[in-house]
Write a protein that binds this DNA or RNA. Structure first.
Length: 842
DNA sequence: CTCTCCCT
């Protein structure tokens, strides 16, 4: 065997395995860890007759690793070295190394927590941090500490963040190996690119084609950008244009192969993240990295996933650049500046932090763990997502009220699908729709069998109806799984769906032949899986729906499903706010909803204020969650009406919607004034804030018979306000905070009780002749503020000391105004002049 | 410009 960098550290590794229960191996790509580490353990005598399990994140990686190790031993796969992946198992009694994928390991741990006969479990590529590998490591560690102290755990990681893993595993020894790749020359943009991504990328491709040799691999976030970029590159083609190959997961197999295999012409591969780790493309010397990728984020608040386009992590950018250095020295053009590079997050958030945790929660419940905190996590599962997952499991009957797994939950956990689909399968089997349930679950698990055919512009009849897919799958079977399918149906995807459906049938023990699925059956099955996404059309003919869970969803405009008043939204992407996008749905009928959801449907009496109509409305609604199935008018009781009215007032314009006459306004101010003067004398609180809060208490009794805004605006609120005072208080108010004051001229003048501060008496100067003392209120404690006015009611002086006004200010005032108002009296001696509101002539 | 990528 040729020497690999990993060979340097194998002796140290073997020593560590003997003295520690967990070891972390850190080795970059090209070190050879995937084949050498298991073989070294096999050759060591300490694990005689015990099995070595190695976890790989992908099926292809698992089979390749097993084949390569077997060939190094000069054997066939399935002898000493074997593998188990979904649908395929190559092991024998002689097998000592078994390479498995993630789901297999979780399942094996769940059925045999002691991992009988296994000496070592190796987690390869652990830095990818898939939800499954995090869970499997936590369960393994739990098993090791509780049941199997002799079990060894080896975690292998390619990146430099292995130290926290070592700490998690009880300060496990961390052994680092060198790697073997060629240097890659990194080139950044001088300044941040403007304009849209595909344009920027296309320009970079043109530059690279002129300046460098070799095939070019371009990383873009998604299929949309790839298509646009492809169009730009093809349209600008000169005679020598290179081969442009799109590459993304939903592409049919032959198109993917065309992108991967060497070509006779120079090649430009436009790829998503698929080329970052899973697929290796031959002949690449140049990488162009747009710096963005798409991620699915689970939003616990809506219970929906959302696709977001985000900047890649620094680790991901390194991995992408490394793709140019597999043959020899390479070049990587990063379409961002060196400054942006310093702002990239070091590693992408692990799946456990961003995913739907329903299936994860079911696995924990099956393991018998109620509190996730009792297991060891590098990043603990987020509380909100876990709670959302558990709530869904309860709704699906997988957990009981205490959160313990039910019998049905155990059956669901044994099915290799999301808990929603597991429920569909269990319920479907029980009710005699087993084969249709398997097809439906398989269609939803695997890649969509409908393909968008961009070149021909042809589309399937409806792009969002689940039933169309069920029927297309039936057609495909009728043709014996081959033959020409209608444009837009992907035969490869049909085969994958059929395979999963058959596996599910075998697990469930279903032997019936495949049966067609009616629209009713399809709706029924999907309502079991998505009870919270049953939806009602908002208006006839509208593409907008309201879901049982209160969210809004919008079907694509051309979807033929838009004729249905009820649908179940299957694949749905939550919007930031407002309506989400319903990608897949199925029609439902109201009778089926009434029957299947009977337990969740209730008639609800509703007496509420309708702000738009400005009146109390009363009806009874048949509700399923947020959606209304039926409703009818009712006659509300007096109490209900009052309560609705009060709610309408406080939710609407508040006190402003009441009839505030001048008298009522003044009354309220007077009481507030006197309450401020005598805070300890038990005056009621008539501030706006308090009145708003205590509507029911003071206004409630006066609302009998009032149902509309018009009636409300005719209600005199002076009486309710007055009745908040005792008779004694009302009498005292009249004396100490009167509405008016009689001035020397004999006029009764209204007092202005301001919000804070003393009340104001605005009066013509001539009406006050002879008065020395400023009038007072509140048992003589508060002099009013006099606004002395000219005959034309212009303010002349503000004072609270009338005596000194007559003595010192009046002579000046007189001089100034006498000429302007000659018809009015301006006596030299105001003390002895007759007060008057009239001119001199009288 | 619909929808990144894996796995039981």
């Amino acid at each position: 065997m040729n020497r690999l960098p990993i060979d340097e550290i194998l002796p140290e590794f073997l020593t560590a395995v003997k003295t520690h229960s967990a070891i972390v191996v850190q080795a970059p790509p090209g070190a050879g860890k995937t084949t050498r580490v298991p073989l070294a353990l096999l050759a060591d005598s300490s694990f005689n007759n015990q099995k070595i399990l190695m976890l790989e994140p992908r099926r292809l990686a698992a089979t390749n690793a097993a084949r390569w190790m077997a060939s190094l031993l000069g054997e066939e796969v399935g002898k000493t070295v074997g593998y188990s992946i979904r649908f395929e198992r190559k092991v024998s009694a002689a097998t000592r190394i078994e390479v498995v994928t993630e789901g297999i390991l979780s399942r094996r741990l769940q059925t045999d927590p002691g991992l009988a006969g296994v000496g070592v479990v190796i987690f390869d590529e652990f830095h990818e941090r898939s939800l499954h590998s995090d869970l499997a490591l936590a369960l393994c560690r739990d098993a090791q500490q509780g049941l199997r102290e002799d079990l060894k755990i080896v975690v292998m990681s390619a990146t430099l963040d292995a130290a926290p893993i070592a700490a998690l595993l009880g300060n496990a020894p961390l052994i680092t190996s060198a790697g073997r790749t060629f240097p890659v020359n990194l080139r950044y943009l001088p300044r941040e690119a403007e304009g849209r991504l595909p344009e920027t990328v296309a320009a970079a491709v043109h530059r690279a084609l002129n300046e460098t040799e070799g095939d070019i691999l371009v990383f873009l976030p998604g299929a949309g950008e790839i298509r646009r970029c492809q169009r730009l590159l093809e349209n600008s083609g000169d005679g020598q244009s290179p081969l442009i190959c799109p590459l993304f997961g939903d592409l049919p197999f032959d198109a993917q192969e065309k992108a991967i295999l060497p070509a006779s012409r120079r090649k430009v591969v436009l790829a998503t993240n698929i080329a970052e780790t899973s697929l290796t493309i031959e002949g690449v010397r140049v990488v162009i990295d747009s710096g963005f990728c798409r991620q699915l984020r689970f939003d616990p608040a809506s219970g929906l996933n959302r696709l977001v386009t985000v900047r890649v992590s620094a680790a991901s950018a390194t991995q992408r650049a490394g793709r140019a250095g597999r043959l020899g020295p390479g070049i990587c053009h990063r379409l961002w500046t060196e400054h942006i590079q310093t702002t990239l997050i070091p590693y992408a958030a692990p799946e456990i932090c961003t995913s739907d945790l329903a299936g994860f929660a079911l696995d924990l419940a099956l393991w018998g763990v109620g509190d996730a905190a009792s297991l060891a996590w590098l990043d603990p599962p987020p509380v909100a997502a876990l709670a959302e997952g558990r709530a869904l499991l309860k709704r699906l009957g997988a957990l009981d009220r205490q959160g313990l797994i039910t019998e049905s939950g155990r059956r669901m956990a044994g099915l290799p699908v999301h808990p929603r689909l597991a429920h569909l399968l269990v319920e479907g089997g029980r009710r005699g729709y087993g084969t249709q349930a398997c097809d439906m679950a398989a269609l939803l698990t695997e890649r969509d069998i409908f393909r968008y055919t961009f070149s021909s512009g042809h589309r399937p009849v409806s792009d969002s109806d689940m039933l169309d897919r069920v029927e297309a799958l039936g057609e495909w079977r009728k043709k014996g799984g081959g033959g020409a399918m209608p444009d837009g149906v992907d035969s490869t995807a049909c085969r994958a769906v059929d395979r999963v459906s058959r596996q599910l049938r075998s697990i469930l023990g279903i032997k019936d032949s495949f049966l067609p699925c009616s629209v009713e059956t399809a709706g029924l099955l999907l309502a079991w899986a998505y009870p919270d996404r049953i939806a009602r059309q908002r208006e006839p003919g509208s593409a907008r729906y309201l879901l049982v869970n209160g969210r809004g969803g919008k079907l694509s405009e051309r979807s033929a499903l838009g004729d249905n008043p009820f649908v179940v939204a299957v694949a749905m992407e939550g919007g930031e706010r407002g309506d989400g996008v319903i990608h897949l749905a199925s029609a439902l009928n109201i009778d089926m909803i009434r029957k299947e959801c009977a337990g969740d449907i209730a008639w609800q009496r509703l007496v509420v204020w309708d702000g738009r109509q400005g009146r109390v409305v009363a009806r009874e609604e048949e509700r399923l969650g947020a959606i209304v199935l039926d409703s009818r008018q009712i006659t509300p009781s007096a109490d209900e009406t009052t309560a609705a009215l009060l709610q309408g007032i406080s939710e609407g314009q508040g006190l402003a919607s009441l009839n505030w006459t001048q008298e009522a306004v003044q009354f309220r101010s007077r009481v507030c004034f006197i309450a401020r003067c005598f805070p300890d004398e038990g005056w009621p609180d008539l501030t706006i804030e308090h009145l708003g809060r205590s509507l029911e208490a003071w206004l409630g009794p006066y609302l009998a018979g009032i149902k509309t805004l018009t009636q409300l605006s005719n209600l005199d609120i002076l009486s309710p306000l007055k009745n908040m005072l005792s008779w004694e208080q009302q009498r005292m108010l009249g004396g100490e905070a009167p509405t008016h004051i009689v001035v020397p001229s004999g006029s009764r003048i209204s007092l202005d009780y301001a919000q804070d501060g003393p009340p104001v008496l605005a009066v013509k100067l001539q009406e006050m002749f002879g008065l020395a003392d400023t009038p007072t209120l509140a048992r003589g404690t508060v002099p009013v503020v006099l606004h002395l006015l000219s005959p034309a009611r212009r303010p002349i002086q503000v004072t609270r000391d009338l005596r000194s006004f007559w003595n010192s200010v009046y002579p000046e005032v007189k001089k100034e105004l006498k000429g302007r108002y000659p018809k009015h009296p301006w006596p030299d001696d105001p003390w002895n002049a007759a007060p008057t509101r009239h001119t001199k002539k009288r």
